[in-house]
Amino acid sequence: MGNRKKLASIANLWYLAPALIILLVFWLVPMILVVVFSLFSWTYGTHPQWAGLSQYHIIFSDPVFWQSIRVTLEFVAAVVVGGTAISLILAVLLYRGIRGVGFFRSMYFLPYVLPVVATSTIWLWIYQSPVGVLDRFIHALGGNGNIGWVTEPNLALVSLIIFTIWFSFGFTMLLFMAGLTNIPSELWEAASVDGANSWQQFFKITWPLLTPTTLFVVVINTINAFQSFTQIYALTRGGPLNGTTTLTYYIYQTAFRFFNFGPASAAAVIFFILILLLTGLQFWVSRRSIQYGG
């Protein structure tokens, strides 16, 4: 009996084996390996040498690394706050008594399904100064018309943020709309019978009941924004003057352009810790602020 049971449970492992092997080899083991790699001094073609924490010391004394942390945090904060606010407003506007909801919804979502390389290409053309359509439009309105959207160090990050919100707001709007369908419509009806106006209904009913969805959107947005790379590569290559070098770009550049695997691995470990801390913090905040359960 005992043997048969054991046999059965080994047979059951076959169901798990294919997924488990792939996830082990390409996801879990690499997670350990990257920590190990970060302790070695290692460039392409040379033998790795034990280096203790010196690789961390190297990146910590690299001003570009610190700048990339700042750029990443600014980028993530702007995309998360801006993207979440815009998609929440649109979801709420669309949700009640609008004709053509399906049409608006699918058009807003369209940028998200298109390949980022393709949309980055067209935005790079839109952003060109002074020949791109944005500058030409501003010029036609009597403005400066030579703004340097992707060439001015202070502006390039803003341009990336605008692009990122543009292609992702439709996605987070869908998440908000799904969350709205979970709120019983009797609540709004009762409120409007009681004479609550649209603003009161939003702040007293929609917003508090949507808190779990909002948290979820914020976490998803944070994780996605942290992992932005394609548009940075296509639009600005981390420049000008490293003004758009995020941590992902820093890792890519250090590992696959300069082939410094040690410092790049150290940066990858920091990257992982940063995402973990930030999403952990968001869950902790939400635990304390959600009163209505998720």
Binding site: F26, W27, V29, P30, Q227, F229, F261
Partner: peptide, 17 residues
């Protein structure tokens, strides 16, 4: 746990594997 792992943090080991 793999859901928590951002691909960019393991891209170097994956490349070498």
């Amino acid at each position: 746990a793999t859901m928590m792992v951002p691909f960019y943090s393991i891209i170097i080991p994956d490349y070498l594997i």
